[in-house]
Structure formats: structure tokens, C-alpha cells
Simulated scan of single mutants.
Amino acid sequence: MQNLKARGVARPASALAMLLMAAVVSTIAAGAAQAGLPDENAEGWSLRKETDNIRVFTIDQPDSSFQAFKAEAILDVPIENLMAVMINPQSCVEWVHNCSESYAFGDGNFHDRYAYSVNDMPWPVTDRDYVLRIRTHGEKSDGEVVMNLNAIPDRREEEDGHIRVDKSDTLYRFIPEGDQTHMIWVQHTEPNGSIPGWLVNTLLVDIPIRSMEQLERVARWERYQNHELVYDSSGKLKNVVPKPQSGDD
């Protein structure tokens, strides 16, 4: 990863606490544009943790004991690789910390689709699951791609042995910078169950760090190489596809 100090994070107290926190933060999904999220440029963000390449901020949310976070990183991979990962409905298990199951369901397309995912929790804590809507859009003019992620818990029946997360809003913003990508991740989740707010807020910053570091590694895998962003005649992003191989028609 590229150093991010010019723009602007330590490890959790225990492995069990990290696993508990994973249910709150891990997600791959989407939904109505940034519903329930603080503005990424709002005043009040507090820098909580910083590594050479990632900065994580938190902010209090009205009527909630759980803070929102914002994570920023310069990932040393091109945006095409990252979008190839993000459109794979199973990729949650590859890069999101403690995501143990993920797949697409229902009708959907590149711009508006649905996913189900599970976070594996240590006994005796009950696994958390998410039913999520993913909306993706981008403009050729600046090359930026935005994904809005929201929980829609009633879209599927509840699963035995899981606690359904009923409120989670996430924004992924990918900004191309040559062969690198500036990623911004904003999220706020209200988990069901008895996970205390103080624990969530104490450990909130470590999950996006671990996940973003893993995302950079995954985006270098062979299966995610040689993709391209496809735009329509008005310059709107419409898909991410493998590049034609030489000799293809």
C-alpha cells in the first residue's frame, strides 16, 4: 500500500473482541443513497487510528450509542482490479474480516442488486447475518465509482441460528489515481443483540484496517486481473468486464 500520512491506526484488545466487533462492521451490500450516514466531509470526524497507509476516523451519531467510521487508504492496485472484486457476490469472504458466507440472490443487475452475507462468531456468540442491497454508479468524466450499501432485513426470511442485522448503511468510494486507487469507506451499523456500544466504539477502527489491507492483496489475485470499466454513450458506468484476449472476436 501507498503511504497515506500526507492525507491522514494499533491492534484490538483481544481476539474475541475482534470477532464480536466483526458482526457490526463487516458487510458487502448496498442501497438507498447514503441513507443514515454522516457526510464524509462533515466537521466532527475524529482521527482514531493511523497506519502508514490507512486513516480511520469516527463520529457520534444522533440517537445511537454506536459511532460511524470513515476509513481512507491509497490502495496500490488499479480501480479496475478493485471493481472486479466488488462485483463478485462471493468476494466478501475473501476480503471482509470474518465474513464466512456471501452470495447474490433475487433479481438484480450491475447497478442495483442484492446480497446475503454471514459473519462467523465465536461460541457462544450468535452469528450475525445481513440482507443487503447494492447500488453502484460511476462517471467516465472523472473515473470515480461509488457503491451505496444498506440493510434491507425483511427482503428474506430470517435464518435459524443467526441474528439479523436490521440497520447498516455503508458507502464505498473508489477514486482512480493512475495505477493506484484512493478508497473511502463510511459506515454506520446498529447491530441487534447484546453487543455493547462501548465495545463497538473501542474496537471499531481495526476491522476496516484489516479488511482494506486484505482487499489490496485480493485485488492482485490472477482472477481479478485484466478487467475494464464499460461506459454507455452518455458516460455512465454500466459494467465491469474482463478485457478481450488477443485473438478474440
Rank of each mutant, 00 (worst) to 15 (best):
M1K: 11
Q2F: 10
Q2V: 13
L4R: 08
V9G: 14
A10N: 11
A17P: 05
M18Q: 15
L20S: 09
L20V: 10
M21T: 14
M21D: 12
M21G: 12
A23N: 12
V25W: 04
T27Y: 15
A30K: 13
A30G: 15
A32S: 09
D39Q: 10
N41V: 14
G44M: 03
G44E: 04
K49W: 09
E50H: 08
T51H: 07
T51Q: 05
F57G: 07
T58V: 06
D60L: 08
D63I: 04
S64Y: 05
Q67P: 07
K70C: 05
E72Q: 09
A73F: 00
A73L: 01
I74L: 14
L75N: 00
D76W: 03
A84L: 02
N88E: 11
E94N: 10
W95P: 02
H97L: 13
S102P: 04
Y103H: 15
Y103G: 07
A104N: 08
D107S: 14
D107C: 09
G108P: 01
G108Q: 01
N109T: 04
R113Y: 00
R113K: 05
Y114W: 15
Y114H: 15
Y116G: 04
S117V: 00
T126V: 13
T126D: 06
T126Q: 10
D127M: 03
R133N: 03
R135S: 06
S141H: 02
V145S: 02
L149H: 14
L149S: 15
N150C: 05
A151G: 07
R156D: 07
V165E: 02
T170S: 13
L171M: 08
Y172V: 01
R173V: 03
F174H: 00
E177C: 13
G178W: 14
Q180W: 11
H182K: 10
Q187F: 01
H188I: 06
G193F: 03
G197P: 08
W198A: 12
N201V: 02
L203A: 12
V205W: 12
D206E: 12
I209D: 12
L215R: 02
R217K: 15
V218E: 07
A219D: 00
A219N: 01
W221P: 05
R223T: 12
R223Y: 06
Y224T: 02
N226Q: 14
H227R: 04
D232N: 04
S234F: 07
L237D: 01
V240W: 02
V241T: 10
P244S: 04
S246T: 09
